[in-house]
Design a protein around this nucleic acid. Structure first.
Length: 826
RNA sequence: GCGGGUGUGGCGGAAUUGGCAGACGUGCAGGAUUUAGGAUCCUGUGCCGAAAGGCGUGCGGGUUCAAGUCCCGCCACCCGCACCA
């Protein structure tokens, strides 16, 4: 099987030897270093989402990095100083799980994988600036996680509270809201349960309004879909808070509602079964045993079950009553799990006539239903809640008003009486960042019996993870760090008494929330990043990554950026100006997975077709945001094209610097057109189209060599050089070798984008189509600046037109010189 | 249920402001060269039709001299959210 190699040699193009030839040269020349302070080029910051080091690179990486690379390399060719860094999102569960399996330190597995990925990326010819590499599991990195935590703590943005939190029984750790997908753990798909724990939170809800408002800045550069998902996630809703007096209770209870206009229709009251309020209200009533039994039953449910909207309503009457503030009616208070403890106030007024959930509940338990918005159907008969909008009835001063007016009026009334006010609520919850696992950033807090939670003094950072040696990392619901007695036992920084370190580690999304700033100077020891470098480079001009992070990572990064802004560290408030969500690489329509047995191995593809062909396949497959189905594309075809392009350069016989202006005019025009069109395609992120334009130019040049002006014509050299530079974005090895064949020194990556004489784009004749009743009947070669009158006359005089008209009368003639004439017969 | 997106040859996909639908590639067919081809080169390739010609961008209407593109109504598929009061 040594055949393929000898064939390639026979035809000259051998991707393997080309790869071997140029890798060491590039290592030497380092064309993508961006840190030279004397560099005066305008700056651009291109960022690929950094990888998690679990094994070697796969097809998904190959696509993402190929696309990011096209953008970075294009901007280098256009004369920018481009920062294109890479690093590793190196903390997290897979390393820990692998370590448990092998009984070794997660650091060993992690760093081995990083080395492997790094070497694969080098071979894949990623245009990274290798001087800027960072690993989040290095203490030099995570000390700044801790630093940010302390700053947040100072500002009241990091706080601890006891709450029912999401718990993954498999990972044996808590999860943020964003990490629960459809009731399942985002990482391992286990059914998530609730657990009451005291945990650390970041107060992201304080930023809800700004996270929403600032999306305006992103509208031009982010996919609409991602913005929409974030808007939905933040879930702003407007309504009112209404106070209900509860019989036998000093303080009134406040509810949140988006429909204060339906207050006259509130016939009962529901509190979340797992809220403190429910326990308090039921305390001492005859309903208490029933309530406790019900609460136990609810606790058994997984989040999955609980979220099932089709499920029958359940609940318990608490033997207590509230007073409807507008009509003074006594309404019963129930507890149910369909009301969420952590949204609004954990209690609602139920308006069964006009809310489906409340109606379901009312019908199940035989509670009264009172229509307050005029409806044709009776909800108690149809079982369907009515009255999204309509005239209000049975509502005193609101009678006759529509929804919007009624809401305004009711808020006015509540305001006057001091029993309510307009209010805004968000679906977004605070970000739970504690994790009960080993491989993460230790939380820099010391718990002291007398002083409480004491921040680790800044000068004592980093709080370095204790060695995994001797620690049992197996998940058991409590952090393994607690068992590192020597590590955990420290004097209280305040009073000096014996105290213990917080044993939890931070969510790894903390690591990735600001890493884009650390790249600016990853070796800096005095601050997380250099403020001056930030002015030079940030924010990120182009971010590239999968849509899987549409909410989690991107929302957290946006939050961190606003916090950094408030701290005065930066002068912008959005981290990523443009965002490109590349599609996935799939096989036969479905995601590659071992269980499906449809995994295509990147290493196999690289061995068969070479790096350039794989990169080209990824880029040429279609629009970058679409999925690439490997069954639909042809890496072999890509290789064939690269060989064709290479041979064009090989065939050139003129010397470098040959005067192109004396060359074949038709090929020169084709070259100018290809460059211009590729440019437009690249500027609008239609990389597949840019490749097509390059292919057209290769075809035209081939033709010129074989059956046109011949290989010695300087226009052929001009075309081949343009192809080399255009190709350098996608197929750097082939392009570099073409550059060598053309008599140039490396690197083609910094040769500069080809220029052309705009006069070459002007055509001296264009094809004008002549339509009769919208159908093409004739084509005329005309001057591009022909007048409408001349063109009309010319078209009408044409034989084809005359015979097609067959003497019919003409109603109108539409002339769009010089491209079209449409003759409309009567 | 709510919200959003997408429908173009056998396949992946092209197509400024409405103005030659199918660029480029793949696949397929035929040919050249070759001991051979999973190499290279050339030719053809939307569909129907022998041809003339007709039809054609999910379906049905509409606007227009002209619609893949704009408007209205459907259908299909995909994605996100889903007891958030």
């Amino acid at each position: 099987m040594s055949e393929p190699v000898s064939e390639d040699l026979r035809h000259g193009y051998d991707f393997e030897s080309i790869q071997e030839r140029w890798l060491p040269v590039w290592d030497e020349l380092q064309p993508f270093r961006s840190g030279d302070p004397a560099d005066t080029r305008e700056t651009r910051y291109v960022l690929d989402m950094f990888p998690y080091p679990s094994g070697d690179l796969h097809m998904g990486h190959a696509e993402a990095y190929a696309l990011g690379d096209v953008i970075a390399r294009y901007w280098v060719q256009r004369g920018f100083n481009v920062m294109h860094p890479i690093g590793w999102d190196a903390f997290g569960l897979p390393a820990e799980n692998a370590a448990i399996k092998r009984g070794e330190d997660p650091a060993i597995w992690t760093y081995a994988n990083i080395e492997q990925q790094k070497s694969s990326m080098r071979r894949y010819a990623c245009s990274f600036d290798w001087d800027r590499v960072l690993n989040t599991c290095d203490p030099t990195y995570y000390r700044w996680n801790q630093w940010f935590f302390l700053k947040m703590h100072e500002r009241g943005l990091a706080y601890r509270k006891a709450s029912a939190v999401n718990w993954c029984p498999t990972c044996q750790t808590v999860l943020a809201n964003e990490q629960v997908v459809g009731g399942l753990c985002e990482r391992c798909d286990s059914a998530v349960t609730k657990k009451k724990l005291t945990q650390w939170y970041f107060r992201i809800t304080d930023y809800a309004e700004r996270l929403l408002d600032d999306m305006q800045q992103l509208e031009a550069g982010w996919p609409e879909k991602v913005l929409l998902m974030q808007r939905n996630w933040i879930g702003r809703s407007t309504g009112a808070e209404v106070q209900f007096v509860v019989e036998g209770r000093e303080e009134p209870v406040t509810v949140y509602t988006t429909r204060p206009d339906t207050l006259y229709g509130a016939t009962f009251f529901v509190v979340a079964v797992d809220s403190d309020l429910a326990a308090e209200l039921v305390g001492g009533t005859p309903a208490e045993p029933d309530f406790v039994a019900y609460l136990d039953q609810v606790k058994q449910l997984s989040e999955m079950d609980r979220l099932d909207a089709g499920r029958e309503k359940t609940g318990v009457f608490l033997e207590r009553y509230a007073i409807n503030p507008v009509n003074g009616e006594q309404i019963p208070i129930w507890a149910s799990d369909y009301v969420l403890a952590d949204y609004g106030t954990g209690a609602i007024m139920a308006v069964p006539a006009h809310d489906q959930r409340d109606l379901d509940f009312a019908l199940k338990f035989g509670l009264p239903v009172s229509v307050v918005v005029e409806s044709d159907e009776d909800p108690t008969v149809t079982g369907i809640a009515t009255g999204d909008d309509g005239a209000h009835v049975n509502s005193g001063p609101l009678d006759g008003l529509g929804k919007a007016d009624a809401i305004a009026k009711m808020i006015e009334i509540l305001d006057e009486r001091g029993t309510g006010k307009a209010s805004i609520n968000y679906r977004l919850r605070d970000w739970l960042i504690s994790r009960q696992r080993y491989w993460g950033t230790p939380i820099p807090i010391i718990h002291c019996d007398t002083c409480g939670e004491v921040p680790v003094p800044e000068e004592q950072l980093p709080v370095v993870l204790p060695s995994a040696e001797g620690l049992d990392l197996k998940p058991k619901g409590a952090s393994p760090l607690g068992a590192a007695i020597e590590w955990a036992s420290v004097p209280c920084p305040k009073c000096g008494a014996p105290a213990t370190r917080d044993a939890d580690t931070m969510d790894t999304f903390v690591d990735s929330s600001w890493y884009f700033m650390r790249y600016l100077d990853p070796h800096l020891t005095t601050a997380p990043f250099d403020v001056e470098q930030a002015k030079k480079w940030a924010p990120v001009d182009q971010y590239v990554g999968g849509v899987t992070h549409a909410i989690l990572h991107l929302l957290y990064s946006r939050f961190y950026t606003k916090v950094m802004f408030d701290m005065g560290l930066i002068d912008f408030n959005e981290p990523f100006t443009r965002l490109l969500n590349q599609g996935m690489v799939v096989m036969n329509g479905s995601a590659m997975s071992k269980s499906r047995g449809n995994v295509v191995r990147l290493s196999d593809e690289l061995a068969t077709n070479g790096v350039d062909a794989v990169r080209l396949t990824m880029v040429f497959a279609g629009p970058p945001e679409d999925d690439v189905d490997w069954a639909d594309v042809s890496p072999a075809g890509a290789k064939k094209f690269l060989a064709r392009a290479w041979r064009v350069a090989d065939d050139v016989t003129s010397v470098p610097g040959a005067d192109a202006t004396t060359g074949d005019i038709e090929l020169r025009k084709a070259t100018a057109k290809a460059i211009s069109e590729a440019e437009q395609a690249l500027d609008s992120y239609r990389f597949n189209v840019a490749v097509a334009k390059t292919m057209e130019l290769v075809n035209a040049t081939r033709k010129a060599i074989d059956s046109g002006c011949g290989p010695a014509d300087p226009a052929v050299r001009e075309a081949a050089e343009a192809v080399a530079v255009m190709l350098s974005l996608v197929a750097p090895y082939t392009a570099e070798d073409m550059w060598r064949l053309l008599g140039h020194q490396p690197c083609v990556a910094r040769a500069g984008w080809p220029t052309f004489d705009p006069a070459l784009l002007v055509q001296e004749s264009v094809t004008c189509i002549v339509q009769i009743a919208g159908k093409v009947r004739e084509r005329l070669e005309v001057s591009p600046d022909i007048s409408e009158a001349d063109l009309k006359a010319l078209a009408l005089a044409s034989d084809a037109v005359q015979s097609a008209l067959a003497g019919a009368d003409i109603k109108t003639v539409i002339v769009r010189a010089p491209k079209l004439v449409n003759i409309v017969p009567a």
